[in-house]
């Protein structure tokens, strides 16, 4: 499993609130039995007219050659709705390593973390600064330093803006070292079996 390092990149601004996982990857693309290849259908129905790959929708940010990078800027309540982990797979497979928002939906956030896609929660005001800077100049650089828990906007005219972000210390260690939750849980199997035995005897 890949360990998470500092990401310095340009960013792609997706300015829409309440983006649900049905938009990120529509249900009709959930029929695969592997985790690969979901990136090509990321935001499928926002990217193409009438489901037609030769007709990209004008005005949708993924179709704008000015914007690219490993950081996706999103608005409030990103990833709401269905629990499909395919949404996190699609974003990661497309080439993003970080998603930034002022507010993530719960299940999506867990799914992202389990796939080494880092959800960075920032203040509304910092998010506005990010959108403003990136939308006005797509070459604006953004740096996400997980070890220091900082996200920095390299402003072209003026000093860089930086904000600290929260992450659970356990999860941070996992990401920096490339550990999976499942490794931890597997190491506890005896303790889990003992827990089961105690429950049976105490009839809980």
């Amino acid at each position: 499993m890949r360990a998470f390092t500092t990401i310095a990149s340009t960013a792609v601004p997706l300015n829409a609130e309440n983006v649900d996982t049905d938009q990120i990857i529509p249900a009709r693309f959930l029929k695969a039995t592997s985790r690969d290849g979901f990136g090509k259908n990321l935001f499928r129905d926002w990217r193409y007219e009438n489901d037609n790959e030769s007709r990209p929708r004008k005005g949708f940010v993924l179709n704008d050659p000015a914007f690219h990078g490993r950081i996706l800027l999103c608005a409030k309540n990103f990833g709401c709705g269905s629990s499909r982990e395919h949404a996190a797979w699609a974003i990661k497979d497309y080439g993003f390593d970080v998603v930034v928002s002022s507010f993530f939906a719960d299940i999506f956030k867990n799914n992202a973390l389990n796939n080494f896609l880092l959800p960075v929660t920032v203040s509304e005001s910092f998010l506005n600064e990010l959108f403003k800077a990136v939308e006005s100049d797509p070459s604006t650089g953004v740096t996400v330093d997980l070890a220091a828990q900082t996200i920095t906007l390299d402003k072209k005219n003026g000093p860089a803006l930086s904000e600290k972000f929260d992450i659970n210390p356990y999860k941070k260690t996992c990401l920096l070292n490339g550990y999976d939750d499942i490794d931890y849980l597997l190491s506890m199997k005896d303790e889990i079996a003992e827990f089961e035995n105690n429950r049976i005897t105490s009839n809980i």
């Binding site: 996190a88 931890y184 849980l185 597997l186």
Partner: peptide, 20 residues
Amino acid sequence: FGIGTSEVEMALATQCLMQH
């Protein structure tokens, strides 16, 4: 509660999940 596929794997493997 609903979970993602990585968590489905964890629950299958250990009957447990890591939850806040």
